[in-house]
Design a protein around this nucleic acid. Structure first.
Lengths: 188, 188, 188, 188
DNA sequence: TATGAATGAGGCTTCATTCAT
DNA sequence: GATGAATGAAGCCTCATTCAT
């Protein structure tokens, strides 16, 4: 195992930031190489092409959310209110750092119509997110209702992330989180 | 030697469809020319460059929504419930045809971080949309509350448009519209 | 019709020389551009890609041989001996100028195994060449025999062109042409 | 960690097949590595670079022909007719297996104009081939005449190999071999 | 010897834009 | 206005080769 300048995972992590900021089509291999401090060629040792790299990035980001965020919904030791608070707080933090975009939503809106190869990665990500929230809400709602509230929450969340960027105002996210919190209480 | 077949407005309209489907960075001047049945060169008689063309497109789309959708919120002759029903029904129709994307949201997520030149157009569009919905909700809510509900509705709306494309399921939009409708009643 | 630096036909002609000298895979678009005094990009206005350019080159060379060489076999006014003499003399001249290679044979041996897209162009070229010689030999031979002699002559011809380059000696071609001439007389 | 599976000679042999099929310029070190089941790096332990590898291949193929084919011309125990029959039969077999190309002729036509470093290998190969056939024909012809007939035969042979590939028809080779056989008898 | 990451040059192609006609 | 050739930069990718391990 030779010491590498950047491991494959680090390449994926760094590339994720660049793709999130610049978008898929507006990110060149040169952009990625510069961000990683590598030459363009080396990317083709690790990934077949730009598309496969992007798939690895989407998979890696999904995994990161799974472990770091979605898992919070399944920890048995907490009360639902505590779970939701932790969950939403963590989500808020994750989407507020940097410039606050969501790679998955960006990629969905940019590529779904003409580059369907990423669709499965996006679908699974949002399904897992909804599942996690539904698991929390199901403490106070029937399964169906919990699921619908989870869906609504994710929709609002992504809308808020967009408004954060369009209007440069974090208010939308905070108000949205408050609504999501109150929805749990309302179920009693 | 074909006489020009499309007026400037028609070029803008057709370009809007292409940009919506393909995204800004993934759309070449050749794509637009082919979609319009024109030569690339002619675009440069009408627009200084691709960026200015996009601005014209964003402006045109904004105008189209203003006249066709947002105006419904300001017609005095209807009851708020009727206004909202017409408004949401129209919105549903506008976002369901074709492949169901929203050029403004797509452009926001794709370009805001690195191409800020489009930001004003997007900001104004969403502000007008929120204003329109707030005007309707203000019949049953205080101005502040009405505005927040309007914001929430637009957020959910864009989230539903995204889910429509991610999951290929119109259910998200229908359920979202039902919630938006009930919010007006809840204000009584 | 704007004055062009190089017409499409001139591009094809110049490219043919480059391809013949350097081979298909060893010729870069930059090589062609430099030889034509153009930029690389312009080639993509005239030809879809390198492969299509090569097809146009092969077609153009075929046409050139048809008009300039093969046609000599079908001129009614000459005796067969005169026809053959003119034909072989012309062929000798055509293959002796420059560095003496044959684009069609070069391309056949270089590409047939892995790039079958050129096969039809090569097949037709050699078929026409054989047909032309067979037409001459048929004045003294039965059709079948004439055809076989024509085939033999082309085989020897291409072998001689190769030896011309391998050994740098024109003797092979001259001796080969003498044999081809004597074959007509032998048929009496 | 596979122990090296192929000796240097086996690498040369396998590489020869790949070069014959794909051509010199269209064969990458990666192609060779894959065909040999080795890593690219190992080639640089055995050969300085691609060019030196090719020289080793050309040398190895030459040697193979020397031992397997050309030697038949110098076995004293046989009558010239038998020698020629064995020689041509063996040659026919060697050029008919696989896809029927001749690495030496392919390399000559592909590289002679721009990569003269292979010329000596090709020249010696063809000289040895002509020498061998001349040795057989000299039983019935003067030395000069025998040599010219040998040259003619090799020329026709390579022409037939080309036609075999261009037209996908083995007839050209069979007819050519028959002519070569009859030439010996004609010398009586 | 053997590996595989790394490099830098170059290959094919696309693209926004310009310009002569 | 309208055309289409032309450009130069950039984009994705491949390749021969090197080097640390």
């Amino acid at each position: 195992m030779p010491i590498q300048k950047l491991s494959k995972d680090e390449i994926i992590f760094t590339s994720a930031q660049v793709f999130r900021k610049r978008g898929y089509n507006n990110t060149s291999m040169a952009d990625l190489a510069e961000a990683c401090g590598l030459t363009k060629g080396i990317f083709y040792h690790h990934f077949e092409n730009k598309e496969e790299l992007m798939k690895a990035v989407l998979h890696g980001v999904h995994l990161h959310f799974k472990v770091t965020l979605f898992a919070l919904a399944y920890s048995d030791s907490l009360a639902p209110e505590e779970k939701l608070e932790k969950f939403l707080g963590k989500a808020r933090k994750m989407f507020s750092k940097n410039d606050g975009g969501c790679l998955m939503a960006n990629t969905a809106l940019e590529t779904l119509s003409t580059q369907p190869e990423f669709a499965p990665y996006l679908k699974e990500f949002f399904r897992d997110w909804i599942d996690a929230l539904a698991a929390i809400y199901s403490a106070r709602y029937q399964e169906d209702a919990a699921r619908r509230i989870a869906e609504q929450t994710v929709q609002e969340f992504e809308g808020a992330v967009m408004f954060l960027r369009v209007f440069g105002d974090k208010r939308y996210m905070d108000e949205m989180l408050e609504r999501a919190t109150m929805r749990l209480a309302a179920g009693c």
